[in-house]
Design a binder for these strands. Structure first.
Lengths: 120, 120
DNA sequence: TGAATATATGAACATGTATTCATATGTTAT
DNA sequence: ATAACATATGAATACATGTTCATATATTCA
């Protein structure tokens, strides 16, 4: 005979106690979405390159484009994404806009990322 | 009169010295792609939830599906992605497969992520 | 052996996203 | 005012990716 099934998951419940314990420790949905969104921003090689470059020193859009061998528009679009995620900030000097890191955590996050990769 | 332009970026070079200094400090292309790929894996809310759950204790596929209110197939697909990224490992006990974290760095990376979000 | 069940996997579909192109905006210098 | 130029932005396109559905695989138990 069949036991009760959770509608959505398509299988019988195996460890109800585990599920309840873990559920009680889970952060709010929104928090988890926010972290995921942050990592989504870090999950593109162009943006990683930009951030890594800005880790060294501030640069203008044109410098970044030249450094990465990409056109200005692509860089500008990506800088907007990074700006929205509060990962970079900018200052304007005449026509030129200089971008720099907005948060030291980027360095630590990259550090941990590299360590994980080395950990194979 | 026009100065030389980098073919790709569509603008004149402004700070050639900066570009060269930064370029000399950039890691290998492949390394940067690998970090981006790692963060790409972390950049999905379902996978974030799974990892956060496994941060508490090991769970079988069915438990995870029930916890997140998703079907078994979706979870299984995502676990494969996490496995490929060496973020989770598994042990088989009969029909049941128990997943757990493969690397302590996940905790630190999440930690830094949360701190960045708080830093607004 | 056959039924039940836990997990894995391939294909299809829908959605999201990075880049390019064309063009707009704003600043400097003539 | 006009030209040159650095940057921003909207639309279009191409590609990647998450979920679902159907089904396969593997294990346990009667």
């Amino acid at each position: 005979m069949k036991k009760a099934q959770i509608e959505t998951c398509g299988c019988n419940i195996i460890h109800e106690d585990v599920i309840e314990r873990v559920r009680s420790e889970m952060p709010q949905e929104e928090t988890l979405y926010d972290v995921a969104d942050l990592f989504k921003v870090l999950g593109d090689s162009t943006r990683v390159k930009i951030l890594y470059a800005l880790l060294q020193e501030e640069m203008c859009v044109c410098d970044i484009a030249a450094l990465l061998g990409m056109n200005q528009s692509a860089i500008s679009h990506q800088l907007r994404v990074l700006k929205q995620a509060r990962l970079v900030k900018f200052k304007k000097e005449g026509k030129v806009v200089y971008y720099s890191l907005d948060d030291e955590h980027v360095k630590n996050i990259f550090q941990q990322g590299f360590e994980h990769l080395a950990h194979k």
